[in-house]
Amino acid sequence: MRKVFARPKSMKDMPMHYCPGCTHGIIHRLIAEAIDELNVFEQTIVVAPVGCSVFCCDYFDCDAYGASHGRAPAVATGVKRVLPDKIVFTYQGDGDLAAIGTSEIVHAAARGEKITVIFVNNAIYAMTGGQMAPTTLLGQVTTTTPKGREKELNGSPIKMSEMLSVLDGSAYIARVSVHNPAGIFKAKKAIKTAFETQISGKGFSMVEVLSTCPTNWGMTPLKALKWLEENMIPYYPLGEFKTPTEVV
């Protein structure tokens, strides 16, 4: 008998603080698996955000930084410019990346900063108590949109992958989902490609991962997966928006 599935080496053996059924844990694992498979653990550096995943730098066993809210791409830029041979990735939520951190993410992508961004989009601010995020869907009820997000008042949700893929500096941009095993398989592939894009020095890479927040959505974990599939995927289509071959 041999282990065919076990904790990836890049992840620390400790319980995670996430709520039951929260898909952050799955995404963490996929990143760690990619790092292991590419054999870059010793040279990988993670920049953690502010939000639920503020503690992700505890779970990844590699060297790490804690950034302020939204600024992880700027911190990663500073690190990568000093250590161009190392693998630097940020892990950011939707409030962090698509609201307060829009300036940093857009310009990191525009500069073609050779970093990898894992962007976890669960359409809500989770840590702070379920407020409307820039990616909250129209009609979605949150603690700050008690009647559902209204276009007239709040505008429409931002599609970050589409936005960033039009920039010359971005080399690999994909949107994936972890709502079922097939989605997880594709998510893993995209995350690995993103790291490979960085390793080969082709430019900025980002994987947007559609994720659930059962607690703040007010659903069971299973219902949340279904809700993601039925509501998020139609608005946030999955797929690769930019691949390194398109980079001039």
Binding site: A74, A76, G78, R81
Partner: peptide
């Protein structure tokens, strides 16, 4: 904001 956070990273 970007520059001071790049300083943080470096």
């Amino acid at each position: 904001i970007g520059s001071i956070n790049m300083v943080y990273g470096a």
